[in-house]
Design a binder for these strands. Structure first.
Lengths: 181, 181
DNA sequence: CCGTGTTTTCAGGAAATAATGAAATCCAGA
DNA sequence: TCTGGATTTCATTATTTCCTGAAAACACGG
C-alpha cells in the first residue's frame, strides 16, 4: 500500500487494484481460448499494465507462482518478442517490460503465428497436394482439389497478414477506420 | 479396400490413403495450436475430405476413438456450424457432412470466434475502463488509458472481421488478390 | 407396450500440460 | 579465485483436459 499519490485514498486504490486483477484474470482466460497457457497470458497482462519494469520476484508474488514457472514464462514471452529484459545500471536483477503499443503487439503476434503455424500448415498442404495431383481415381481428384483450395486460401491469408503487419500503424489504422464507416 | 475405381491400383490407393492420413494428423496438430482439441480438428478434417457423408461408426474406426467421444465432437462441430447431420430417407443412422467451401468455413469460424472470444474480451475491457476512468492517481490514469487502447483496437478488429465475414467471396477474394500484387 | 438399433450422458481412468522447488549454474565484484 | 545473489534447469507432483465404456434415454415399427 505504499506509493499512493497524495490525492488518492484507500477506496480508489483498492478499486484500481480490483480492476487490474480482473484484467489479469480475464486476459489469462482469453489466452487459453487462443492456445496460450494461462500463466503466460497473465504475466503478459501484468507487464502490459505495469507502469514500471518488474523483476521475477514481483511476478512471483503478484501471480503467486514459483520462481521456475515465472522464469519459464518470462523467457517464452521474450522469445515471442512481446516483452524484453533489461538490467538497469547498477542493478544485479533483471527487470522486464512489455511492448505496450497495441499495434506493435498485433504485428509481433501476427508474424509469429504466421511463422509457427500458418507456414507449416501450408507446407503440409503443399505436400499432400503434390503427392496426389497425378493420381487418377475420382476420390484422389476430389482430395487433391480440396487440399489445393485450402492451400490457396491460406497462402492468400498469409500474404495479407504479411502486408498488414509490415505496414505502419499510421497508414493502416486511419484506413481501417474509414473503411468501416 | 473395396470401392477402388477400375483404373486405380493398390499403389495409388495407398498413396492416397497416406496423404489423407497425413492431412488429418496435421490438421489435428494445427487445431491444438489454435485452441481446438485435436480430435475435433481431426473429425473436421476427415469430413472435409470425405466425398460422402459419414456415420458415427465411420468416424470411430477411421480415427480409432470411442463412440462417446466421436459423438461429443460431432455435436460440437454441429454447434459451430462447420458440419451438419442428415438422416437420409429410409436410414435410421445419422450421417454427417462438412461445409466444404473454404470461404464459408472462414466466415463461420470468424463469426463464432468473434462471438465467443472477442466480444466477451471487449466487455471486460469496457468494464475495467469504466471502473477506473474517473480515478485520480497517475497509476489509475495509465491503466485506464492502456485498457482503452486495447479496447479500441479490439473493437476495430471486430468491426473489420464482421464486415469481411458478411461479404461475398466473389467480392473479397478478387479484391484481396489484386491488393496483394 | 415390447424389441431393436441408435444416440446421449457421465463417472472414472489415461494422457497431456502446467507448476513446484531445490540443486546446479552463472556471473560480477572483491 | 572466491563469494553470494540471481537465474536456469529439471525431476517430481498437481491439475486439467481428453477419452473410454457402459448404462440410460430415445425413437420407431410391429
Amino acid at each position: 500500500m505504499k506509493g499512493n499519490t497524495p490525492a488518492s485514498n484507500a477506496g480508489e486504490a483498492s478499486q484500481l487494484q480490483a480492476a487490474k486483477d480482473e484484467f489479469i484474470t480475464q486476459w489469462g482466460a482469453m489466452g487459453s481460448a487462443w492456445g496460450v497457457n494461462r500463466t503466460m497470458a497473465q504475466v503478459h497482462a501484468l507487464l502490459m499494465i505495469s507502469t514500471k519494469p518488474l523483476t521475477t520476484d514481483d511476478i512471483m508474488d503478484e501471480l503467486k507462482v514459483s520462481r521456475g514457472h515465472a522464469n519459464t514464462n518470462l523467457r517464452e514471452l521474450c522469445g515471442w518478442g512481446l516483452i524484453r529484459g533489461i538490467i538497469p545500471k547498477g542493478e544485479r536483477k533483471e527487470f522486464f517490460e512489455a511492448e505496450k503499443d497495441i499495434w506493435k503487439m498485433f504485428c509481433i503476434i501476427t508474424r509469429e503465428r504466421k511463422r509457427r503455424e500458418i507456414r507449416p500448415a501450408i507446407n503440409v498442404l503443399k505436400d499432400c497436394h503434390e503427392r496426389t495431383e497425378t493420381l487418377k481415381g475420382g476420390e484422389a481428384v476430389a482430395f487433391s482439389k480440396q487440399v489445393k483450395a485450402l492451400r490457396e486460401f491460406l497462402e492468400m491469408t498469409d500474404g495479407i497478414l504479411s502486408k498488414v503487419a509490415r505496414s505502419e500503424k499510421s497508414i493502416i489504422l486511419p484506413w481501417a477506420f474509414k473503411w468501416l464507416s
